[in-house]
Amino acid sequence: FKEKSRSVLREWYAHNPYPSPREKRELAEATGLTTTQVSNWFKNRRQRDR
């Protein structure tokens, strides 16, 4: 993950740790990642924050 992608994901996570499928698609387009990568990033981040 590039730093720019991570910062976008972190910003979204601060507002909503559970993005909808549509939001995940938008994030994937904005970051250049796949929706699976975005989903996994959020899943891992939520697990880490437990």
Rank of each mutant, 00 (worst) to 15 (best):
K24W: 08
T36A: 10
P21I: 13
R46E: 05
E26T: 03
D49V: 04
K2H: 08
F1L: 08
S7Y: 09
W12Q: 06
R22S: 15
P17K: 09
A14M: 12
F42G: 02
E26H: 04
V8Q: 06
N40I: 10
Y18T: 10
E23R: 01
R6G: 10
F1I: 14
K43W: 06
L33C: 06
Y13W: 06
H15L: 13
K2F: 13
Q47W: 13
E23G: 00
T34R: 07
E23W: 00
F42E: 02
N44R: 13
H15W: 13
K24I: 07
N16S: 14
P17V: 11
A14F: 07
P21M: 10
R50S: 15
Y18F: 11
W41I: 00
K24V: 14
H15P: 01
W41V: 01
K24Q: 13
E29I: 08
H15F: 12
L33F: 08
R10W: 10
E29A: 04
R45T: 13
Q37Y: 09
K2N: 13
L9G: 00
N16W: 02
R46Y: 04
S20T: 10
Y13G: 00
P21R: 07
F42W: 02
K4E: 15
S20E: 11
V8G: 02
N40V: 11
Q47M: 09
R50P: 01
R48F: 06
V8C: 08
Y18H: 14
Y13M: 02
K4L: 08
K2Y: 04
T36Q: 13
W12G: 11
K4W: 07
R10V: 13
A30E: 14
N16E: 12
E11W: 01
E29H: 03
D49S: 04
N16P: 00
N40K: 14
T36M: 10
R46S: 05
W41D: 04
Y13A: 03
V8Y: 10
W41F: 09
Q37R: 08
G32T: 03
N40H: 13
S20K: 06
K43Y: 04
K24C: 12
R45M: 14
R6C: 09
A30T: 12
R46D: 03
D49C: 03
N44A: 08
Q37L: 04
R45C: 04
R25P: 00
K2G: 09
S39R: 13
T36S: 14
S7A: 09
Q37N: 09
L27H: 01
K4M: 11
A28S: 13
A28R: 00
A30K: 11
N40Q: 05
Q47Y: 06
R46F: 02
L27N: 00
K2A: 03
A30L: 12
K24R: 11
D49I: 04
Y13I: 00
K43H: 09
A28G: 08
S20I: 05
P21V: 12
F1C: 06
T31L: 12
E26I: 10
R46Q: 10
R22T: 15
S5W: 10
R22D: 15
A28V: 04
S20M: 08
N40M: 12
G32Q: 13
F42I: 03
F42V: 00
R6M: 13
P19W: 00
S39I: 01
K4F: 09
W41C: 01
P19E: 01
E23L: 00
R22W: 14
E29M: 03
W41N: 05
V38H: 06
R25N: 14
N40D: 06
T36E: 10
W41L: 00
Q37M: 10
T34E: 09
K43L: 08
R46G: 03
R50Y: 13
P17L: 06
E26V: 05
W12F: 15
D49A: 06
R48T: 11
Y18M: 12
P19R: 01
A28F: 01
S39Q: 07
P21T: 14
R10M: 11
E23F: 00
S39P: 01
T35S: 14
E26S: 04
V38I: 04
K24G: 08
W41G: 01
T35I: 10
A30N: 12
R10S: 14
V38A: 03
L33W: 09
W41S: 03
R48N: 12
S5G: 07
H15R: 11
R48I: 11
E23D: 11
T35N: 13
Q37A: 10
Q37C: 06
Q47S: 10
G32E: 09
N40Y: 07
E26W: 04
A28H: 08
P21D: 14
T31N: 05
R6L: 14
K4S: 13
E29G: 05
R25G: 15
E26A: 03
Y13N: 00
P21E: 13
L33Q: 03
E23T: 02
H15V: 14
S7K: 10
H15M: 14
R50G: 14
D49N: 06
Y18D: 12
L9S: 00
L33K: 08
R10P: 06
R10F: 12
T31D: 00
K24T: 13
A30R: 12
E11C: 04
Y13C: 01
G32A: 11
K4V: 09
Y13F: 05
L27M: 08
S39T: 14
K43F: 07
D49K: 03
A30C: 12
F1V: 10
W41M: 07
A30H: 08
